[in-house]
Every structure is written in structure tokens, then in C-alpha cells.
Design a protein around this nucleic acid. Structure first.
Lengths: 196, 196
DNA sequence: CAATCAATGCTAACAGTGTCAACATGTGTG
DNA sequence: CACACATGTTGACACTGTTAGCATTGATTG
């Protein structure tokens, strides 16, 4: 939380952009409702509030950068879980459990990701970095669906699975459901794709 | 959006509390990202900003009141859907589809509900009105689970179903998934409880 | 090496917010 | 009628994001 001294200091006060992002990520990791205000961040960085405007056009851009970093971390985490878990129903369920677990361990970050993604036009011609990272996450989910399904079935099944784990994660994050790893496993394993 | 003249005017300027809530609900119904600021509301109500403090201790209390109203509407809507749909797998799926549809039609309100509920202590001795309304929604879901299940199974199945529809609704609201009623039906109908 | 220039940072200010204290006004009751 | 209380207003404070203008540092170039 104290001012961070970056290793690389190419400019007269250091790599402020990286320092700001690092401090933001720390807050997202350590606090349920982190204060990501520009002034508050700048204060704890030992810098004037307006200095951040040399690195981000506005507050939203800073939040987007944090969300992108989080999205990349989530994507990596999920991809790694996918190779470890292998295929089949149980393997896929394992990946879903991983998603919920990550959400529980990074509540503020996950919330930021989805808050920010909601504002991005995912159908734009020039896809943003965030749209790109998000697309990869989606593709990873779809790739795990059973081979014998038709294309439509796969799409529906992927959405079904994603909705389930995302909804469960959100309910836990919002405090409606007490977090219980055994319960999470039970609920996710319950998933089966009725062929109708 | 213009100043609202209440029918009952028991005090010298009218029932400001009801007028504020009504205006808030209108904004939640008509705008994706409604401005629920105290000053903005008061301005459009034709009243000074601090007047609202005679009816709500602070801004959060106003938001809570709006969320409670939304929660009650959602609960009523779901209860009605439950009696219409009847029992069984298809009946339950119908109720789930109703949930998603309501969410799509009331995006800002649903978001407010879940944002506010996250801040409520649902295990408190003196349950708030919101905790109460929320508990009823939960009970309604659990009551629809198949009779032949054990208590634990029923709890898991209820959470499974709730997670699915809530997650699907959230993904649509956040813009990751295009809203398509047929797709929603397909995804929800896919639900089946594997007995493991 | 010295001069220039762009990158980076600072101060001051503006509009907006939630909130409090003090004052004003209308309403109902003894 | 007079009093008390509920309600509404004004003014102020601390906070926020943001912009304009000025200062400083580091890198580049003659």
C-alpha cells in the first residue's frame, strides 16, 4: 500500500504507469471493495492526482487496464486447469470448479472484469485487447464440449456450463451462498447435458 | 422524469419519499445505467438535495429501498410463474426462463438488487426486510425441487438451478451473450440433475 | 558539451457529489 | 391561538474526476 519503487525508472519519477497498475492489482487482491479512485491511488503512490493523466486518458482507461490484466490472468489460469484436468465430464467439471475457486479468491478482480466487459462492444470491427482476451476465454470453454454434439448443441452446452459456474461464483461473491468447496463440487458435478 | 405530483399530499410538499422511490424505479426501468444520485433525483423532483434526508438517512438507504421494491416485484413475478408452470422438469425450466426474461427486461433493477444484497448480513438476528424478501425467493426455488431427492440433494439441486439461470442472466446483462429467447430455452431445458 | 524538445509531473481551478448544521416554513394538536 | 414537530432550504465542507497552464527532468541532436 505504501509508495512503490519500481525497478526500472526510465523517467524522472519512475514507471508510474506500471506502479499504478501494480498498486491497483494489490488492492483488488487484498480488499473486497477496493478504493480505485484516481486521487486515492495517486496519494498512496506519492504523486499528484493529475500525474496519472499522462499515462491514462481517464479513470475508465485505468480500470480497463486493470480488468484486462485480470482477464489475462483468469484466462491463463483456466487454460492451465484445462490441460491438467483432461477431457470428459469429470475433467470439465474440474475446470468449472477451478473457475469458481478463482472467483472466490479474486472477488473484486472478477467483479471489475465483468463490470468493464459489459461496456465493451464485443462485435466491433477493431477488437480491443479486452475483447480479444475475452474471446479466448470463451473459445477455451467451447473447446471442452463433447465431440459427438452438433455445433448448435455445443454452443448451447458451452453456454450452459459457463452460466452455471459464473452464476454460482456470483451468488457466492454476492454473499447469498456460503462458500463451501464440497458444495461447489457437488453442484458443478451435477451438471449433465440432456439431449433434447 | 419530470416532477411527480403525488395523489396523497399529507405533508406540505407531498409524499416526497414515495415520489423519490417512484422516480428511482422509473429510471431503473427506462435506463441501462440510471443516475440515482441524490442531487440529481432531488433536482428532477423539484426539491432541494437535502430534503431527501428527511426520508432516508443516506443515499444507501434510498438504494436499499429501491432494491427491496425490486426484490418484492421479482419474488411476486417468480411465484406467479411457479403456479402457472406447474411441477416437473419442464415446469421448473419454465420458471427459470421466466427469471432470465425478467432480468433482461429489468437489467438495472436486477443489478441493483444483487449489488445491495451483497452488503446485507443474511445471517443477522434481526433480519432486514431485504433479507426477508430474499429468503422467500430462495425458498420458492427450493420448493420446486423433485420430491424424491434427499435434503442435501435438494439443496444442491436448488443451488445448481439458481446458479444456472442467474449466471445466464448475468452473462446476457453484461453483454457477453446476445439475448435470444430460443437459446435461453435450450440452455435452461438442458438442465438435468445427475444423481451422483 | 550545450541547446533544444518532448515526456512527465505539479499547482490551481471547476463542476459535480454526499453529507452535515443551522435556519425557515408549513401542519396538526393542545 | 400557540406551540411543537415534521418537513424543506441555504450554506458549507470534504471529497471526486477532469482540464489548463506552468515547471522540471531526461533524451536527442547539432
Amino acid at each position: 500500500m505504501l509508495p512503490v519503487l519500481p525497478v526500472n525508472a526510465p523517467y524522472h519519477h519512475g514507471d508510474l504507469r506500471a506502479a499504478a497498475l501494480q498498486m491497483g492489482m494489490e488492492r483488488l487482491a487484498n480488499q473486497e471493495q477496493p478504493d480505485l479512485g484516481l486521487r486515492a491511488l495517486a496519494r498512496d503512490l506519492g504523486v499528484s492526482a493529475t500525474a496519472l493523466y499522462r499515462h491514462f486518458p481517464n479513470k475508465d482507461a485505468l480500470l480497463d487496464a486493470l480488468a484486462l490484466e485480470g482477464l489475462n490472468r483468469l484466462g491463463q489460469h483456466q487454460a492451465q486447469a484445462a490441460v491438467q484436468a483432461g477431457g470428459g465430464h469429470d475433467g470439465f467439471a474440474e475446470v468449472g470448479i477451478t473457475y469458481v475457486t478463482w472467483a472466490v479468491e479474486n472477488p473484486a478482480l472478477l467483479r471489475l472484469i465483468y463490470n468493464r466487459i459489459g461496456l465493451v462492444d464485443l462485435t466491433a470491427d477493431d477488437p480491443t485487447a479486452m475483447g480479444e482476451a475475452f474471446h479466448q476465454l470463451r473459445a477455451g470453454i467451447a473447446a471442452m464440449m463433447p465431440d459427438e454434439m452438433s455445433k448448435d448443441q455445443r454452443a448451447a452446452a458451452a453456454l450452459h456450463a459457463w452460466s452455471l459456474v459464473h452464476g454460482l461464483a456470483m451468488l457466492i461473491l454476492d454473499g447469498q451462498v456460503e462458500y463451501d468447496p464440497a458444495m461447489v463440487r457437488k453442484v458443478v458435478m451435477m451438471m449433465d447435458f440432456k439431449d433434447n
